[in-house]
Design a binder for these strands. Structure first.
Lengths: 210, 210
DNA sequence: AAAAAACTGAACTGAACAGTTTATATTCGT
DNA sequence: ACGAATATAAACTGTTCAGTTCAGTTTTTT
C-alpha cells in the first residue's frame, strides 16, 4: 500500500538515531560547526560514520537538526521564567537570576557563541534561536509589565525598550567577561550583586510605588 | 658593525609589509581566523604567498599581529568618548551615542565576533581586546562619575557596576539583533531611542538632581 | 530459521589548505 | 651599472577532513 511513500525525507526510524543526535549535540556545542569533525561525532555517538550518513545526508543538515532541537530546549527553559502575579521587585529579582543562570551557563555560553560564529554560514540559525529564546522571554516580560501597570505597580512608556533594558542590565559585567574568556564561572555573590543592581536600576526608572 | 644583530625577529622593513598587514586585516575581519585562507590574504594584499611568509613565519603570528594593531586602533577610538566637564545628562547622552556607533559599526561587529569565535584558540586575544577597549571606556566612565559626584550631580554606590550597567543599557535591543544576524544597519532614530532610554534609566537611578 | 533491515570498520577519494621550494624577475643602494 | 635584497608565479608536500564504498556482522521482522 501507500504507493506514494517513496519520500526523500530522512529516515525517522532506526535504533541509533537518538545516539547520533546526542553525540552531535555534544560535539557541536563544544567545538562549533567547523571545529567538529564528523569522525569525532561518530566516535562520541558510538556509531559508525556510515550509520551517521545513513541518517543525515551531510554535516550541515545534521547541524541544523541539532540546532532546531536546541531551540526547542530553549523554549521550554524560558517557560516558567517569570512569576506573573508577584509584585515587581520580587518577580523581577527572580527573573533576573533565572535569566542570568541560563545565559551564564556553559550551555547558554556555547549556544550564543555558535549562533554568533555561524550566523554567516547559517543565516536562519540566529533568527530561530532569537525567536525561541530571547524573543519569548521578552514577550513574557511585556505581558508581566502590562499586568503590573494595571495594578499600578509599574509605569512604562515603551514596554519593548524596558524589557530589552532589563535583559541587558542582567548581563552587566559578567556577560562581557564570559564572552571575552576572562572568566567562566561566577559565584552566587557575583550573580546576586548584578541581579540586585539590575532590579534596583529598573525600578528606579519604572517603579510607580511612592 | 653590530655583530650581535643576527636577531631571529621578524623583518620590520620591506616595501610590502604594510600591504600584507592591510590585506590580512581585511580578510581576517571578514572571514575570521579559520575562514581566512593564506592564499586569499596574499591575493587581497596584492603580494605573493612567498613574500607573505617572508614577513610572517605562520598564519597564527600574522593573525596576532593584526589583532594587536586592531587593539591599538580601539584604544584611540575610546580616547575622546566622554566630555569630562559636561553635566551628566549631556555627557552621558553623547557617550551613549559614540559607544553605540562604535559597537554597531561593521568594524565593531567583526572584532567582537572574532574575539568570541577565536577566544578558545587565542586565549590572550579576548583579554587584550577587552583591556584596550571596554575596560578603558569603563575606567573613563568611572573617572567621570567621580567628578560628577564631587559636583553633586550623581549619587552612586558601586561605580564599577554603574559603568557596566550604562554600557549594557546602550546595547539594548540593537546589539542582540546585530549578533544574531537579524539586522545589521540601524537608523539614527533607532539609535536615538536606545541612547535616550539608556540615559533616562541611568539618571533615574543615579541622578542626584532634585 | 530465513529474509530483510540496520550497523560496522576500514579503506578510499577528492578537495582544501598551510607551508616550502625553485627558478626567475624586479628594485635599490652604491 | 652591478650586486644584493626583495618579490614573484607556480608547482609541490603533507595533512586534515567530508563524504563514499564495500564486504561482512548484528539485529529485527516474519
Amino acid at each position: 500500500m501507500h504507493p506514494m511513500n517513496i519520500e526523500p525525507t530522512l529516515p525517522r526510524t532506526g535504533r541509533k538515531l537518538a545516539q547520533v543526535l546526542e553525540g552531535a549535540r555534544t560535539v557541536f556545542l563544544r567545538d562549533g560547526f567547523e571545529g567538529a569533525s564528523v569522525d569525532d561525532i561518530a566516535r562520541e555517538a558510538g556509531v559508525s560514520k556510515a550509520t551517521l550518513y545513513n541518517y543525515f545526508p551531510d554535516k550541515r543538515i545534521l547541524f541544523i537538526e541539532v540546532a532546531k532541537a536546541e531551540c526547542c530546549r530553549q523554549e521550554e527553559a524560558t517557560d516558567k521564567m517569570i512569576a506573573m502575579s508577584a509584585p515587581p521587585a520580587e518577580a523581577l529579582r527572580v527573573a533576573a537570576e533565572r535569566m542570568m543562570r541560563l545565559i551564564l551557563s556553559p550551555f547558554g555560553r556555547n549556544v550564543f557563541k555558535i549562533c554568533v560564529a555561524e550566523s554567516d554560514r547559517f543565516p536562519e540559525l540566529g533568527r530561530e534561536f532569537w525567536e525561541s529564546g530571547p524573543a519569548r522571554v521578552r514577550a513574557k516580560m511585556i505581558d508581566y509589565f502590562r499586568q503590573a501597570m494595571d495594578r499600578g505597580e509599574l509605569l512604562i512608556d515603551d514596554t519593548d525598550l524596558a524589557a530589552d533594558q532589563f535583559a541587558e542590565l542582567c548581563k552587566s559585567d559578567l556577560f562581557p567577561k564570559l564572552m571575552f574568556g576572562i572568566q567562566d564561572r561566577f559565584s552566587d555573590a557575583e550573580i546576586a550583586r548584578v541581579a540586585d543592581g539590575a532590579v534596583a536600576t529598573f525600578m528606579a526608572r519604572y517603579g510607580a510605588a511612592k
